[in-house]
């Protein structure tokens, strides 16, 4: 038996928003520790890794490990039926071929349940090695989203260049060239508005704009985003999810032919 209760179901709506542009379907692996998802986009260029710890939920029970293959378009249809303040309960029997979503209004006067068919997906788990990154940039997630949106008007690729002084995002194309430089913030009132850089050595890498823009669909999950970079390895874009865990996106760099 699997059962997870979430008082504010808006978190799951935001998670879904953060993954559905990259993935058509995904397997939610449920265990005693929580819910995990790892999936590559169809072109095998980026990977989404989601971790929601069981202790973040208001109630969580998972007697046996359960892998739920879910069509994300179907799940989106169901989650649209929930109010942001509804209490959500997800339930599945062991070895079930369906999962139930139950939404209760705060005053408990409206209760809806939706049963969704599960699908069989070929699971492809990737081992992600522990990496010491040369540069770790923390910045407001809204600022990162804005930069990716602005630069995508100029070219298909964004060059991210990180030094001790700051981080520079550049794009170039038919229109011309664009450069956005962010310096480390000296002092800010709010931690979430800070730009901080931990640098071992400077790094410059090129990435496809389209994917960075898809990652920014997670902006609503966290006020800050963390970018981890090392030469010739995938970029990690991480958004913390409150008391639950995180969503991480890995994106392979573009390299010279």
């Amino acid at each position: 038996m699997f059962e997870a209760r979430l008082v504010q179901c808006s978190m799951l709506k935001k998670v879904l928003e953060a993954i559905k542009e990259l993935l058509n379907e995904a397997t939610f692996d449920c265990s005693d520790a929580g819910i995990q998802l790892q999936a590559m986009d169809n072109s095998h260029v980026s990977l989404v890794s989601l971790n929601l710890r069981s202790d973040g939920f208001d109630k969580y029970r998972c007697d046996r490990n359960l892998s739920m293959g879910i069509n994300l378009a179907s799940m989106t249809k169901i989650m649209k039926c929930a109010g942001n303040d509804d209490v959500l309960t997800i339930k599945a029997q062991d070895n079930a071929d369906n999962v139930m979503f139950m939404f209760e209004s705060q005053n408990q006067e409206k209760v809806s349940d939706y049963d969704m068919k599960l699908i069989n997906l070929d699971q492809e788990h990737l081992g992600i090695p522990e990496t010491d990154y040369s540069c770790i940039i923390k910045m407001p997630s809204g600022e990162f989203a804005r930069i990716c949106r602005d630069l995508s008007q100029f070219g298909e690729s964004v060059v991210i260049s990180c030094t001790k002084e700051g981080v520079k995002f550049s794009a170039a194309g038919d229109v011309g060239a664009a450069n956005i430089k962010l310096a480390q913030t000296a002092n800010v009132d709010k931690e979430e508005e800070a730009v901080t850089i931990e640098m071992q050595e400077p790094v410059t890498l090129t990435f496809a704009c389209r994917y960075l823009n898809s990652f920014t669909k997670a902006t609503a999950l966290s006020p800050q985003v963390q970018l981890s970079m090392s030469a010739d390895v995938p970029l990690v874009v991480e958004y913390k999810i409150g008391d639950f865990g995180h969503i991480r996106y890995y994106l392979a760099p573009k390299i010279e032919e």
Partner: peptide, 14 residues
């Protein structure tokens, strides 16, 4: 010219 890398080259299938 730039070539887009694939992730599978960086991570191992387990």
């Amino acid at each position: 010219a730039l070539r887009q890398c694939l992730l599978t080259g960086f991570f191992m299938n387990i």
